[in-house]
């Protein structure tokens, strides 16, 4: 299938979806409106709500807050994950001692921590950052731990035979290997940073996309809820696109599935 046909079909799906939505919420079929606008709103209202947000500029503040929370959660969680992952991988005893506790904390659905963080850190951005950190940390931690432990025996021996000291092995072998594992989970960890921010906002805050959605829901403004969801997905897609660019830059040395040579 050519690119143009594919694109046309993709757009067609959106058009059909929107038209169906609009028709079912406004035109009575068999004397009855199938999707009551009170529960389902309609595309036109949702669209005008989005336009209003952007034209008045209200949305930028909320986007900015959510973005800041996501970035902070990602950075703090990643740095912590890298440091602890490295430490555990190089000190098997420490890893063995803490193993059950790491598993325990990781098994906990992180959402239940949100009220605790709100109590501890207040309703500002830091309680959301903390929630995001607990999500990002474990992904990065497990990947870095794995990355350091699974360094190829031969590559390591080669480094030693070339005369590398422990510090040089760290710099030229362990570190790049761990980073490559971390970067391979970049999409997941960035995604989770956003999830932490939005869920945190939703459960109690004064600004952010999650707050916007929660406020709309509170006054049964379904158009506002849908508008918030669309803005949120566009926001995540944009961030994901940015991550893809960064990844391409950082992982040039990695074989992709496309070029068959292993």
């Amino acid at each position: 299938m050519s690119r143009a046909t594919l694109l046309a079909l993709q757009i067609l799906v959106a058009v059909i979806g929107i038209v169906l939505w609009q028709v079912l919420t406004t035109v009575p079929l068999f004397g009855k409106i199938l999707l009551p606008p009170f529960f389902f709103s309609n595309p036109f209202d949702v669209f005008s709500q989005i336009v209003k947000w952007f034209s008045t500029g209200v949305i930028w503040k909320h986007l900015g807050i959510t973005l800041a929370e996501s970035i902070l959660a990602f950075v703090i969680g990643s740095v912590g994950g890298v440091l602890v992952g490295f430490w555990f991988a190089r000190q098997p005893l420490v890893a063995a001692v803490f193993d059950p506790y790491v598993k325990m904390v990781n098994a906990l659905p992180r959402v239940v921590l949100a009220p605790i963080f709100a109590l501890w850190l207040g309703l500002g951005i830091w309680s959301k950052v903390a929630l995001g950190v607990t999500l990002v940390f474990f992904i990065v931690f497990f990947n870095v731990y794995q990355g350091v432990k699974e360094v190829s025996r031969t590559v390591l021996d080669n480094g030693r035979m070339l005369g590398m000291s422990e510090r040089q092995l760290m710099q030229h072998v362990y570190w790049p290997s761990a980073l490559s594992w971390m970067f391979s989970s970049l999409h997941t960890s960035v995604g989770f940073a956003v999830v932490g921010a939005v869920v945190g906002e939703y459960l109690g805050s004064a600004a952010g996309l999650g707050y916007l959605i929660q406020q709309a829901e509170g006054i049964f403004d379904v158009a506002g809820v849908f508008a918030g969801m669309f803005v949120l997905s566009a926001f995540v897609i944009l961030i994901d696109f940015g991550v893809t660019l960064v990844e391409r830059r950082l992982l040039v040395w990695r074989p992709t599935a496309a070029d068959g040579r292993g």
Binding site: V155, P176, W253
Partner: peptide, 12 residues
């Protein structure tokens, strides 16, 4: 100097 049988280059 040691030349290994398996790939021992630093892939990165």
């Amino acid at each position: 100097g040691y030349l290994f049988q398996a790939d021992a280059l630093f892939p990165w």
